[in-house]
Amino acid sequence: MISAEYCRLMARYNSWQNGSLVTAADGLTNADRWKDRGAFFQSIAATLNHLYWADALMLERLKGNPRPEDNIRHSLTSPSDWDEFKTLRSQRNEEIEDWAAQLRDVELCGMLAWYPGDGSTRIEKPKALCAIELFNHQTHHRGQIHAMLTAAGARPEATDLSMLP
Rank of each mutant, 00 (worst) to 15 (best):
R12P: 03
F135W: 09
D70F: 02
W16L: 10
I44M: 07
S15C: 06
D36I: 02
L134Q: 03
R61N: 06
D32A: 15
Y13T: 13
D32S: 13
L149N: 12
L112K: 00
I123C: 14
N65D: 15
S75V: 10
L161I: 15
E94R: 11
A131Y: 08
P79H: 05
H137T: 11
R61C: 08
L57E: 01
S162V: 15
T139G: 03
D105T: 13
T139E: 11
E60K: 14
Q91W: 04
L103E: 12
Y115S: 05
Q102L: 14
N136Y: 02
I132F: 04
L103P: 13
R61Y: 07
W114C: 02
P165C: 04
K86Q: 14
L88K: 14
G64S: 09
W82A: 03
G19N: 14
I96V: 15
P79I: 11
K35F: 05
R61F: 05
L88G: 00
A24L: 03
A39H: 07
S162R: 06
W34V: 13
H141C: 11
K127D: 01
A152H: 06
A147R: 07
I132Q: 05
Q138K: 04
K127C: 11
W34K: 14
A128K: 00
Q91G: 09
K125F: 13
G117W: 03
H140I: 08
Y115I: 10
E69A: 13
W53F: 08
G153V: 01
A101E: 12
Q102K: 14
A154D: 12
L161W: 01
L9Q: 13
E84K: 11
M58K: 03
L51D: 12
A151N: 11
M148R: 08
L161V: 15
Y115P: 07
A45M: 15
G64W: 08
L57A: 05
Y13A: 11
K63G: 07
K35R: 15
A24Q: 07
D83P: 00
G119V: 07
C109A: 15
D98G: 01
N71S: 14
T150E: 09
G19D: 09
R61L: 08
M111I: 06
M1E: 08
G110I: 01
